[in-house]
Amino acid sequence: MRFRKLRSTTGDAKVEIQMTPMLDMIFQLLIFFILTFKPVTDEGQFGVNMSALPGGSVALPTIVPGMGSQDDTMPQDIQFNPPYRIRLVAGPGGDLAPGGVVMGDHPLAGLDQLQTELRAIVGGFADDFEVVIEADPSLRYAYLIQAVNTISHVGITKINFGAPPPPQP
């Protein structure tokens, strides 16, 4: 009898859980995550495949990328259209010089004109064309990426980087 009574009283008693330490911890965690929170930054990339040419090459110097191609084999050099040479001339401070975009031998007003000209040349067959960018070593990297971006807008995916010709005395 006594046993039963005891059981019934403990069953009725309210079990109190100490919430305060748990709340403390939860708020600490929350504050930690709020303070370390950083929104995901948007980053994209231009994929480049740059196998070094075996035996070297006169036309294309050391760095030879072919964008977008994920082919593990040798780079394909045989093509019908010779690559278009686009030269980026650096002005003082590493900026693009006025008239510093030169396609072949024709100086252009800027990257916008380059896009228009390339679009007119390429037509709908952008896959058949290849472009070699020859940038001055002192040029800022941002202009190179702008040029790659402009050429990619036209649809050309084969973009190579070439060494610029030696400076004229």
Binding site: A52, P65, I145
Partner: peptide, 19 residues
């Protein structure tokens, strides 16, 4: 890029931000 090529790396990606 040249140094990486010298040691046999050939896949590259140039990072940029769209905005």
């Amino acid at each position: 890029i040249k140094i990486c090529q010298d040691y046999g790396f050939y896949k590259f990606a140039l990072r940029a931000t769209p905005e």
